[in-house]
């Protein structure tokens, strides 16, 4: 609804006088996504505040609610940060990227084939263990990820202490604690997204360990062949695991060469 660009400070700390305050100058563009420089995907479990993050960054007013499955399609919006135009895509909330339901496919296809410059994975800090399942799966697909550790206010209220630095070290990608409902931490999130988008920060994502030797051998063998055919593919291991899982969509994208185009072609042109 609010389409006109606005410059609104998003941290509510008393730092307004400091030059570090809102240094990137967030400018919300609403649905104006023309000529974006970077595409950012917003993934996460249902009901972790993705839509709230989306709304506060774009200035749009997507309906949010305490209700898993609120976002059934992708919502898109734009913002400007540090002089670069971003297109933000709010993906459906999913628990995993492994099964074949429509919402998981929408999210998975976007991260894999849409090749976003950054994927923000929004996690519920109060349910870290379950939320990490999705994060680990996203990290198998892309190293260009930022973890948004949301609902920190609620975690604190429950007396949970979360060591975000340790988590960042373990996961190998930036981790930013936020409380999106209160607008806290969003500037730090934007800075991290900006760093990954511009290549200032390069992730070395955690990869899931195979506990079965047979599986591990099978994956290795398949990865060997895949990297020979698609040398530049950033997620050969993940593709191998999908094939071993009998994922027909991935098999089809290999057959049709769609996967190969991903690895060779430059990043997908962003539709104006």
């Amino acid at each position: 609804m609010t389409n006109e660009p606005k410059q609104i400070p998003i941290t509510d700390s008393g730092c307004a006088g400091c030059p570090m305050y809102n240094p990137g100058h967030l400018e919300r563009l609403g649905v104006d996504m023309s000529e974006s420089d970077y595409v950012v995907g917003l993934a996460g479990n249902p009901n972790v505040g993705k839509s709230t993050v989306f709304n506060s960054l774009t200035g749009l007013r997507q309906h949010t609610g305490n209700w898993p499955g609120k976002t059934v399609t992708r919502a898109e919006g734009g913002f400007v940060y540090d002089g670069a135009r971003y297109k933000l895509v709010d993906l459906p909330g999913t628990y995993s990227l492994l099964s074949t339901s429509l919402d998981e496919e929408v999210a998975r296809d976007f991260i894999l084939f849409g090749r976003p410059d950054v994927t923000i994975v929004v996690l519920d800090a109060t349910r870290l263990e379950r939320n990490l399942n999705l994060a680990l799966q996203v990290l198998e697909i892309t190293d260009r990820a930022v973890i948004c550790l949301n609902l920190m206010d609620e975690a604190t209220r429950r007396g949970l202490k979360i060591d975000d630095r340790r988590l960042a070290r373990d996961l190998g990608v930036p981790v930013v604690p936020t409380a999106a409902r209160q607008g806290k931490g969003l500037d730090e999130l934007l800075r991290a997204v900006n760093d990954v988008a511009t290549g200032r920060s390069v992730g070395r994502p955690y990869r899931v360990r195979q506990r079965s030797a047979a599986v591990s051998r099978a994956v290795d063998e398949l990865v060997g062949q895949i990297t020979q055919v698609f040398p530049d593919l950033p997620n050969a291991r993940w593709v191998a695991m999908r094939l071993l899982d009998g994922d027909e969509n991935i098999a089809e994208s290999i057959r049709s060469g769609e996967l190969g185009q991903l690895s060779r072609a430059p990043r997908l042109e962003v539709a104006a």
Binding site: S96, L98, L128, E129, R130, L132, N133, A135, L136, Q137, R158, G159, L160, K161, I162, D163, D164, R166, L167, D170, L171, Y206, V208, R209, Q210, R211, S212, V215, M241, L244, D245
Partner: peptide, 27 residues
Amino acid sequence: FHEQLMEDIYADAARLADRAVTRPGEA
């Protein structure tokens, strides 16, 4: 395979979460 994959992911997620989170007794 699918179950093994899920188990691996769950196990790793549990381990990583355990390292990062400290709970003050029962919340």
